[in-house]
Amino acid sequence: MTYLGEGWDSTAVLVGGRWVERRPRRPEIGPQLLRETVVMPWLAPLLPLPVPVPVVVSEDPVVVRHDLVPGGEVASPGAVQGRQLGEFLRALHAAPVAEAVRRGAGPRPLPVERFRAEVDVPGGEELLAKLDGLPADTVVHGDLGPEHVLGRDGVLTGVIDFGDLHIGDAAIDLAWALHSTPPEFAAAFAEAYGVTAELRERALTWHRLGPWHEVLHGNATGDRGMAEIGLAGVLERLGDGVSPH
């Protein structure tokens, strides 16, 4: 086994050079990993890029395993990758919601009260007010960022980490692609996906909200450094809505 790393929810090791084995870091993440083993076998054939399709190794303790998705984090994505990701998300967001719900997907409530209590910054309430009435009618990845979009030799090779998949606002998946990537990537992505002005504005709301989760996670885990980095990101994105590339 080769240790691959850990995220907020799970740890991963590479087994035999082929399988990625994941275990929950907290008890409440176990059902989330098991849900992926039900949703992803159905969803994967609908998508134009490779994604993890985990199977259950053990239910107690929870252990799941899937084929290694090739590639690594894309350092400087360009137009080709932008078009690929736009086509990928267009396919994902077209997935039948009723079938996803039947397989265990559902809405994901935001911790708005914790946001208010733990992230008290000028302009914060105005941002939180924009969350009221956002649509929740699409199968979304829910945590799409550079660490979860893989590539090699100038093209994308896969998308990973579907633990936060839920029924939500399509714009949440557009936030990074539109507001934290090089212009040529963002433009190609927007054209391939069919981004409207309304979608772009909602994506900016989600982009600005991203660091708020870092503050909450840092507070919950006692990681003061993460909380401080998150707060700096909150202030930066409220100021201009665009983080450095």
Rank of each mutant, 00 (worst) to 15 (best):
L43T: 00
P122G: 09
V20N: 14
I172Y: 12
P24A: 05
L178M: 06
Y3L: 09
E198G: 04
G142N: 10
G5D: 05
L89H: 09
L128D: 05
L204A: 12
G72F: 10
A192W: 09
G16M: 09
V55F: 15
W176M: 06
G210S: 12
V55G: 15
V112K: 13
R65N: 02
R208D: 02
E147C: 01
D9Y: 09
R65H: 05
A170H: 12
Q32Y: 05
L110F: 15
E36D: 07
D60K: 12
L156V: 00
A177N: 11
P27N: 04
L150W: 09
P111L: 06
G239H: 08
A220W: 11
Q81V: 03
V101L: 08
V155A: 14
G151A: 02
T37C: 15
D223E: 07
E201R: 14
E21A: 08
E184C: 00
I160P: 02
W176C: 09
G106E: 12
R90Y: 12
P183L: 03
E118V: 04
L134I: 12
E214T: 04
L43D: 00
A187H: 11
L156Q: 05
T2Q: 14
R18S: 12
E214R: 08
R22A: 06
S243D: 09
G154K: 06
L131Q: 08
H179E: 04
S10W: 14
L165E: 03
A91N: 08
L204F: 08
S10N: 15
H93K: 08
G145N: 14
